[in-house]
Computed example of a mutant assay.
Amino acid sequence: MSDSTNKSAADDETSTGWALVTGASAGIGTAFCRALAARGYDLVLVARREDRLKTLADELNAQCGTRCHVLAADLADPAAPATIVAQLMDAGIEVECLVNNAGYGVPGRLVEVDWKTHADFLQVMVTAVCELCRALMPGMIDRGRGQIINVASVAGHMPGSEGHTLYAASKAFLIKLSESLSLEGRRHGIRVSALCPGFTYSEFHDVTGTRDRVSTMPGFMWLQADEVAEYGLDAVLGRKHRTVAIPGRVYRFLVWLNGAWPWLGRQLNQRSTHRFRKFNED
Rank of each mutant, 00 (worst) to 15 (best):
I93Q: 05
S153Y: 00
V113K: 08
H118Q: 08
I93N: 02
R109L: 07
P138K: 00
L122A: 07
C97A: 14
L98Y: 03
S153D: 02
T127F: 15
V106C: 04
M89I: 06
A128K: 02
N100W: 06
M158L: 11
I149E: 07
L110W: 02
L132R: 03
V113E: 06
M125F: 12
I149G: 15
D120I: 03
V124A: 08
N100Y: 10
A152M: 05
I149S: 10
G160F: 06
R145V: 13
H157G: 04
A128H: 01
S161E: 12
M89K: 12
Q123H: 06
E94A: 14
V154D: 01
G92F: 05
P107T: 02
M158E: 04
T117P: 10
V99S: 09
E162R: 03
D142Y: 12
I141K: 04
G105V: 00
K116Y: 07
R134L: 13
C133V: 09
G108I: 01
K116F: 14
V99M: 03
A135Y: 09
A128D: 09
V106T: 11
C130D: 15
V106F: 06
C130Y: 11
A91C: 03
V106L: 07
V126H: 07
L110Q: 03
R143T: 12
I141V: 11
G139W: 03
W115L: 10
V95W: 02
V126Q: 04
G146F: 06
F121Q: 06
K116Q: 14
A155G: 10
G92D: 03
I141S: 12
V154H: 04
H118C: 10
R134V: 06
G105P: 01
G139V: 09
M137Y: 14
C97S: 14
V129R: 05
G156E: 02
L98R: 00
M137H: 09
G160A: 10
K116T: 14
R143P: 07
I141A: 14
R143H: 04
C130N: 15
V126F: 03
L122R: 05
V126N: 11
R109D: 08
V154W: 12
C130K: 15
V106Q: 12
E112A: 03
W115R: 12
C130H: 11
E131H: 14
E94H: 14
